[in-house]
Design a protein around this nucleic acid. Structure first.
Lengths: 140, 140
DNA sequence: CTACGATCTGGAGCGAGGTCTAGATCAACT
DNA sequence: AGTTGATCTAGACCTCGCTCCAGATCGTAG
């Protein structure tokens, strides 16, 4: 049998690492930093057992981090959730602000992309005509 | 006339900082790190004078950095350009590889965006129905 | 029982990408 | 000449986000 039998609902840190893409080091680090909503349960021997709700939260954290949210903001969000109902408007604002930043980021990346694509085209064209057509501006 | 025109077209480090968005510190740092194609000219007094071609290169650097290219790659690109013609294929590949990374990044951000937008909608809906409808999953 | 891998804690270390300081010099204005 | 602000160099320092280490413990398979 595998590691989880009675533990079908709770996962070890390694299993959570697999499911979230975070390293076990990062998971412990996140916990120390107060990025989790609640305290992680422990076995009698002191090993962490993560609930599916812990894992869902971590998966959201991963998305927010991937999209550039700083750990400090993530921590703030965790605190809001931890303090329970009554601050939903603030949570909404935090997320919505971040969404706007993501939008801006996507747009900036698309501009970069087109500048890069343009450079790529210049190079490709030069190469197609043969490299031997001599000098050209170093910045192209 | 031509000479003075050329002189007029060179910029101080502060002016370049304004035009590129990089700090003067960052400009000196980039230079030290070998990210520039050529050595920057100096006045008799030792102050840097940037040509418009320097500035163009820096503007490309800014775009590449904004889109996540590491300084090491930028340095590599600068070296290729510095060593003159003959390695255009390699430059092309470097840029094209980066363009692919940018594409992947845009796609990842769009996924994040939609996850976040979904969360935002959940919060907005709850708030629209009044905050008083009690408990809900902390991870929502 | 023994091995062996996974996990534990606290704290040090790291790589990226700058940022800042000190103390001197330069250049322009008054 | 004096004042002021920009720039110079070398090098120390900083933030962020992990990553890794040492040394101990847990827990399962053989």
């Amino acid at each position: 049998m595998t590691t989880s039998e009675a533990a079908v609902q709770s996962l070890s840190i390694g299993e959570v690492a697999d499911r979230t893409g975070l390293s076990v080091h990062a998971l412990r680090f996140y916990e120390r930093e107060g990025l989790l909503v609640g305290p992680v349960q422990r076995t009698s021997g002191g090993r962490r057992r993560y609930t599916s709700s812990d894992v869902e939260w971590l998966q959201i954290c991963v998305r927010l981090r991937e999209s550039g949210m700083p750990l400090a903001d993530l921590k703030h969000f965790a605190e809001l959730v931890r303090h329970g109902p009554g601050n939903e408007a603030e949570r909404l604002q935090l997320l919505d602000t971040h969404r706007q930043r993501v939008d801006a980021q996507i747009q900036a990346l698309e501009e970069c992309r087109s500048v890069i694509a343009w450079k790529v085209d210049i190079y490709a064209e030069h190469l197609a005509r043969g490299e031997a057509d001599g000098l050209w501006d170093p910045t192209t």
